[in-house]
Simulated assay, not measured.
Amino acid sequence: MTQIFATFEYTTLLEIAITELEVHGIRRIYAVPLDLRKKSPRLLDSIHRADGLSFIDKSFVLAFMFATVGASKGFVWEWGPILWGLIGAGTGFAVGLLWSWILYLIERHRLQTEIKKGKKGEVILIVTCEEEQSSLVEDILWDHQALGLAKSP
């Protein structure tokens, strides 16, 4: 006996794949739907938990770029390179923070819209079959747009 694990988006292609597996005599099929995230991610990360959302990475990059331009132009401008470098760094940091905040709000709105529309999450499909049927099962799952596939002996 072999188990094949596949992930699908919740679409009609998943239903068609299950039906086609049943037509070929494979009856041991188990589908597990995954829920979507209900809450929006936290704004600030800790040292033990990070979700990949960072507000200050863009801010520091833009602060460095604006400070470099400000310091180089400061040799020509009245207040000098140090002050214009600091002004550029502060401006770049503020622009990066604003940019990250706007992207966060757009992503949060998109997630809330998906939840309100009732969009389904992904589905994990577990198929138990004989060893000689495993290549047929894999072909059927790939043909119906499986997102990923794993096989256990």
Rank of each mutant, 00 (worst) to 15 (best):
T113F: 13
H24D: 13
I106W: 13
L36N: 09
L97D: 04
G121T: 02
A150I: 10
E15P: 03
G25R: 01
G85L: 06
A89M: 14
T128D: 10
A146Y: 03
F66T: 01
E78D: 11
L105P: 03
H24P: 06
A71G: 07
G52P: 02
L98G: 13
G85A: 11
A63Q: 00
K119W: 08
A150E: 15
A146H: 02
W99R: 08
I18N: 07
E130H: 09
E131K: 12
E138P: 06
K39Q: 07
F60H: 08
V95A: 13
G52Q: 05
L86S: 09
D139M: 07
I115F: 05
I26F: 02
S100P: 00
L141M: 05
L103Y: 11
V69I: 11
V76H: 10
V137Q: 00
L105E: 12
Q133E: 08
E131F: 07
G70L: 01
K120Y: 06
R108D: 15
G121C: 01
I115H: 05
L111D: 15
L62E: 02
I18M: 12
E130K: 11
A63S: 02
F93C: 11
A146T: 09
I124S: 01
L103H: 15
A94F: 09
F93T: 12
L103M: 13
T128V: 11
S134W: 00
D139F: 07
P41K: 00
A150W: 13
A50H: 15
W79G: 08
V127D: 03
S46L: 02
V23W: 07
K73N: 13
L53V: 14
V95R: 10
E131T: 14
W99Y: 12
S134D: 03
G118T: 04
P41S: 00
F64H: 04
E20T: 11
F93W: 14
V32L: 14
I16S: 14
G148H: 09
G121A: 01
E122L: 09
I26L: 01
G52H: 05
L53K: 13
E20S: 10
E132I: 04
L83F: 12
A89W: 08
W84A: 06
D143Q: 15
S135I: 11
G85W: 05
L53S: 10
I87G: 05
R110W: 10
L83S: 08
P41E: 00
Y30I: 13
K39M: 04
V69D: 05
Y30S: 14
I87M: 10
L43N: 08
G90N: 07
A31H: 01
L141I: 04
L86D: 08
D51S: 02
F93Q: 09
K119M: 13
Q112Y: 12
G70D: 00
A67I: 02
I126N: 06
L44C: 04
